[in-house]
Design a protein around this nucleic acid. Structure first.
Lengths: 192, 192
DNA sequence: CGTCTATTTGAATGTACTCAAAAGCGGTGG
DNA sequence: CCACCGCTTTTGAGTACATTCAAATAGACG
C-alpha cells in the first residue's frame, strides 16, 4: 500500500525507519469517484494528495465557463493548489477526478509536523516545488512559442498512456486549444 | 548600497546583525552594460543576481532564431536560470541586460554556506521559488486562455514603468507575439 | 547629419476558434 | 440483446486572431 509513496520519497531523500513511520502515520487514504471534486476554486487547499491510482486534474474555469487544465496528476504525482496550500488563502484553481482515483492525503498540519520532525521532508517538498517551477516555466515558453501540434507531441511523450485513459477534450484543454481543433490536427497528421 | 537587498530579505525573514553581515560579506557587486550577457544558454548558472538598478531579461532562443522572453528582472528581482542553478547542469535559458544594470551576485557556494549558516536563508529562497512557481503557473494559464491584449494589460499592471524603459519588441517577446502585432493592437486600442 | 535599429503600416497567409450538425460510443433499461 | 439517451468526437463553413514579408517612417546614437 505504501510502497509507491515511499519509493517516491526515495527519489530525492533517504528516509530511515522512524521517518517512514512518521509519514505513514499521517497519511489519510481516500478514494474519489470519477468527476468528484477534490478542491473547489475559492476554497482553501488544506492537503496535498499523492495519487496511488487514477488521475486528477488541476484547472481554471474562465469567465466564459471554459475550463483550462493546468496539469494532470496520475500515479505518483502530488496534487495541490500550491499557492493556496502554502498561503492558506482561497484557491485560484479547482481539482477533480478524471477516473476513480485513490490518493494518500497529507494535511497542511501534518506537513508542518513532518518539516519539524526531519529537515528531509522540507528538502523533499522544496525539490518538488523547484521541479514544478521548472515545468511551468518551460510549458509557458512552449505555450507561447510552439504550435499546438508540437505541444501535443510533448504531451504524448510526457504522459504516454494517459492519452488512452481520458477524454480528448481534456487533452485539448491541457494544450490550450479547442477539442474541435485537436480533432482536425490529428486528422491532418494521419493524412501525411 | 545594501539597503535594497536587506529590505528584500525582510519581506519574508527577519535577519539579525550576524545574518545580515553573513549575506553582505558574500555579495559580489557587478555592473553589466546594456546588451551584455549575464548567462549563456548551455552554460551552468553559478550565481543568482539581485538587481539593484537596471533590467535583465531571461529568454530562450528557438530553432528559428526567435527570442522568447520568460521574465524581466528589474529593481529588487532575483535573476537566475533556476533549473540550472539548483541542478548545476547546463542552462536552457540565457540572461542579458536590457539597460546598464547593477547587480549583487550570490554564488551557488555562498548560497549553500548561507543555508548552513541559518535556516532563514533556506526559508527565504524556498519562498522565492514558491512565488515563482505560482507566477509561471498563472502565466501559463493566461498564455493559453487569454487574448494577447489582456496579457498586455497584465504586463502593464505588473511592470508599470518598465514599458517606458525598454524597446517594444521585448514586450512583444514577453507576451508571446510579434512586434508588428503588438503595434497594431496598440493602434486598435487607441482608436476606441 | 547619417547610419542603424525599432516601429508602423499594409497585404496576403496561416493557425486556431465558433457555431452547427452529423456520426460514434458507452452505458442503461426495457 | 437491442434501443435509446447522453456525451464525445468528427466534419465543415465561416470568421477572428495573429504571423510573415515587405516597405515606409520614426528614433536613437555616434
Amino acid at each position: 500500500m505504501y510502497d509507491l509513496i515511499l519509493a517516491n520519497f526515495a527519489r530525492h531523500v533517504h528516509l530511515n525507519e522512524d521517518e517512514q513511520q512518521a509519514v505513514i502515520n499521517r497519511l489519510q487514504p481516500k478514494t474519489y469517484q470519477r468527476k468528484e471534486r477534490v478542491l473547489n476554486a475559492g476554497d482553501i487547499c488544506k492537503a496535498v494528495s499523492f495519487v496511488v491510482k487514477g488521475c486528477l486534474r488541476l484547472y481554471h474555469t474562465d469567465d466564459n465557463g471554459n475550463d483550462h487544465i493546468v496539469n494532470f496528476f496520475a500515479e505518483s504525482w502530488w496534487a495541490a493548489d500550491v499557492a493556496s496550500l502554502y498561503s492558506q488563502k482561497s484557491a485560484f484553481y479547482a481539482i477533480d477526478a478524471l477516473e476513480d482515483t485513490d490518493v494518500l492525503r497529507l494535511g497542511i498540519d501534518s506537513l508542518e509536523e513532518l518539516y519539524s520532525f526531519s529537515p528531509k521532508f522540507e528538502r523533499f517538498f522544496r525539490i518538488l516545488t523547484q521541479n514544478g517551477f521548472v515545468i511551468y516555466q518551460r510549458r509557458m515558453t512552449s505555450a507561447m512559442s510552439r504550435p499546438a501540434i508540437d505541444r501535443f507531441h510533448n504531451f504524448q511523450k510526457l504522459f504516454s498512456d494517459l492519452e488512452q485513459r481520458i477524454a480528448q477534450k481534456y487533452i485539448a484543454s491541457y494544450l490550450g486549444i479547442t477539442p474541435e481543433f485537436l480533432s482536425t490536427m490529428k486528422k491532418e497528421k494521419a493524412k501525411r
